[in-house]
Design a binder for these strands. Sequence first.
DNA 1: TAAAAGCGTTGACAAATGTCAACGAAACCC
DNA 2: GGGTTTCGTTGACATTTGTCAACGCTTTTA
Lengths: 192, 192
Amino acid sequence: MHEALFNYIGQYTQATLTPQEQELIRNAFVPKRLRKRQYLLQSGDICRYMAFIVKGAMRQYSVDEKGAEHIVQLAIENWWVGDRESFLMLTPSAFNIDAWEDTDLLLVEKAHLFQLYEQVPTLTKMARQMDDRHSMANQRRINAAISFSAEKRYTDFTLQHPELVQRFPQHLIASYLGITKETLSRIRKHSL
Amino acid sequence: MHEALFNYIGQYTQATLTPQEQELIRNAFVPKRLRKRQYLLQSGDICRYMAFIVKGAMRQYSVDEKGAEHIVQLAIENWWVGDRESFLMLTPSAFNIDAWEDTDLLLVEKAHLFQLYEQVPTLTKMARQMDDRHSMANQRRINAAISFSAEKRYTDFTLQHPELVQRFPQHLIASYLGITKETLSRIRKHSL
DNA sequence: TAAAAGCGTTGACAAATGTCAACGAAACCC
DNA sequence: GGGTTTCGTTGACATTTGTCAACGCTTTTA
């Protein structure tokens, strides 16, 4: 279970964890299994954990006044999920996070995570890498949202995230792109 | 000149810099004055500096195939500007950054910045705070882009960033929100 | 295995937003 | 101070996208 995380850390930091470090991480990250449709976080609750996906698929979304869902993030193996703002500030989250497939997670609490950063420098290094990647990806997504047409956003998405296109139904992809499933259906039809 | 940065660091970290630390920062951050419309970064170039705005106003934007500009960021005193992706990866930037008003900046190169992180722990602390805030703000903006109407995005923006509404003309705000200046003009008319 | 739910598509129509052109007022040079 | 640019607005119209309803098909579930 934790091996997936160790591999992930090794891959992004080029470093190897000592057995002691591995033990610290094992203690801080607790495994959790979610069934499809089960919540990791419901809006209004405080996000107590950051979660590493060992196996499965998750989605993060907001719900508007009309009850419509808007996908903020789609995530599969080796991705992290959690509402950063709620997690860091301990404020109620505006988002829901649930499992789209049966999913194996490793959960870490804020206090444990920060303690780990002190004890395991490699983990700090990994976190900084993750933050950088996350930040760059967000910048791209914002730019796409304000400057690309729906069609360009979609073709861009299929190039950047072919794994996600496989894994999630089109109406979730559409929502992620900020359009309706009908519009995406028509975009796909035209670009054949 | 550097005092603005020291104040900023103090404000976000609750820490005071030693004279030695101040000296290190003075050496790494070099002042630069830009006249209105002058570029800090042009797309295709590598972003060599992160810049702290001491006084003035800047904008970051992309230009599409049709030559239209799309505002990615608007920034004034005590904000940072720079293309993180280009800066970190040393890849050509997709963005332009220029001065909207005559602007005083403090520039820091990547190598100097990373060296400073080693020498001045307080600065590392500040950087982490900035990254967190930046990340949270981006999350909100993405959520707004995919789930809010143009009108809601605008009213939201005026609440979150009244300083920017004062400082920048409406057509830049419109672009930031992903709409045309005409649409923004009509939105404002209706909400009176 | 039968019923139900989820998914993608399509058509007809409505609503939101963009485009283009024009205009006046204010701000900004020379 | 006169000419020029910038900015915000408005109108007419085009385009994009959303909404609603319906339909077949597959997957899930009881």
